[in-house]
Design a protein around this nucleic acid. Structure first.
Lengths: 235, 235
DNA sequence: CAGTGGTCTAGACCACAGA
DNA sequence: CTGTGGTCTAGACCACTGC
């Protein structure tokens, strides 16, 4: 292996394995640790580190005594840097756009004071947005971002919240959402162009940085008709 | 370290670390790799393997050059072996019971033929259940399980689907859910004791074994009032 | 500078699957 | 039996933090 050309050895092996796997059918065998180690002139531990990451990403599964195999799990390769609602909408095959953006300063509503670990009167950015697919509004959202964490928030038209935060040097590593079914109230009905009493999926979305600190909360209300919340979990 | 008393060395260290961490405040420093290695008389690699697992479980985060720290992320310690809906209901603080269980043989409805990778006429178990909290019905569910994968399905009163499958030697390693808001139809209204047109969270839940093969599908319809779907995702 | 975690090596023995 | 992955060792050097 050519050393020091690009990152660590195990990253290079990971990338090589990704390419090898890509066009294999599900359950096809992957080369053994020893053969990869010999091929690249590295130790078995380095290869194991690369494979462990890919097992974790569900690209590979392993059976002791038998070997390693391509996972039949469908993996969304574009998901790594996609965003919350934007990403989930695209998973549904929609081409979302974000419009009617309003950004101002507000005081954090009480229910979010504790989850965001802030003082009750801490100033926050309030970001209100409307998602549309094919011009039709499908979702209303209001996000609150502590000004202590993000002194100057700037968001471009069409830019997602996670993109805007990333531009401020803030990376969201983990997110949590709480979803429930509610009925459309007058505001929802007007803005989403549905009757009062229509089925609405209300999601409260918390974003956290790598050290586990909350970075924002966003409440979205989405038309139930065509939108489906997709979730994967490890058990 | 007393060897071979219980599983592998790194599992023992993991368990010990869990206990050490439990009563620490968030961001409290965890002993260094070297100190743990010396304390247990193992090599640094073994300690790293234990810590890597805990980092992965979000119990610990690490900063190069500084150390390892307790993650401020709230972790549900009981989640590892809990089940789909049962687990999520308990996350809401409810004490769910499962009643009105009906198990029979059916033909898989068309929408689930493709996701379950089955033939259109393959026989499946149909399992219908009602979840209750404090006696009040909160959720209707119907599950389909391929008879090819589970020749003889038996489920006890109060037992969860994942428990029953586990008793048949089938372990669910990953799950996927698709949730949307709908309005209560007549059946829902009657069985869940809500008005027609009430807000219902409809979730379609797929369970997969470790090799990625689908093991069941379950559709649940839950009263929107008190039930909230909680989701965590890595980005 | 010492201490931390991040990467890597070259071995070893074990448990398990399959011919 | 061979080949696979699972665990483990005792080192090494590096990058980074904080004093």
């Amino acid at each position: 292996m050519i050393r020091r050309t690009d990152g660590t050895l195990y990253h290079q092996i990971k990338q090589w394995l990704r390419g090898e796997i890509e066009h294999l059918p599900p359950d096809a065998p992957i080369p053994s640790e020893l053969s990869i180690a010999k091929q690249f002139g590295v130790s078995r531990g380095t290869v194991r580190q690369a494979i462990a990451d890919l097992v974790h990403e569900q690209l590979i599964y392993r059976i002791q005594g038998k070997g390693s195999f391509k996972s039949p799990v469908a993996v969304n390769h574009t998901s790594a840097h996609m965003d919350g609602l934007t990403r989930q909408l695209m998973d549904c095959g929609l081409q979302p756009s974000i419009t009617d953006i309003a950004l101002d300063t507000a005081v954090l509503p009480e229910p979010y004071v504790e989850p965001l670990q802030l003082a009750a009167d801490a100033p926050v950015w309030r970001l209100q947005r409307v998602w549309r697919a094919s011009g039709r509004p499908i979702s209303l959202g209001v996000a609150y971002i502590p000004q202590g964490a993000v002194p100057g928030l700037h968001i471009e038209a069409g830019q997602s919240l996670l993109q805007a935060l990333s531009a401020q040097g803030i990376t969201i590593a983990r997110a949590e959402s709480y979803s429930r079914a509610v009925l459309a109230d007058a505001l929802c009905a007007e803005q989403l162009q549905v009757p009062v009493g229509a089925a609405i999926l209300q999601m409260t979305y918390y974003g956290y940085t790598a050290d586990g600190r909350p970075a924002f909360v966003e409440v979205t209300r989405t038309v139930g008709e065509h939108y489906v919340l997709h979730v994967t979990q490890q058990l």
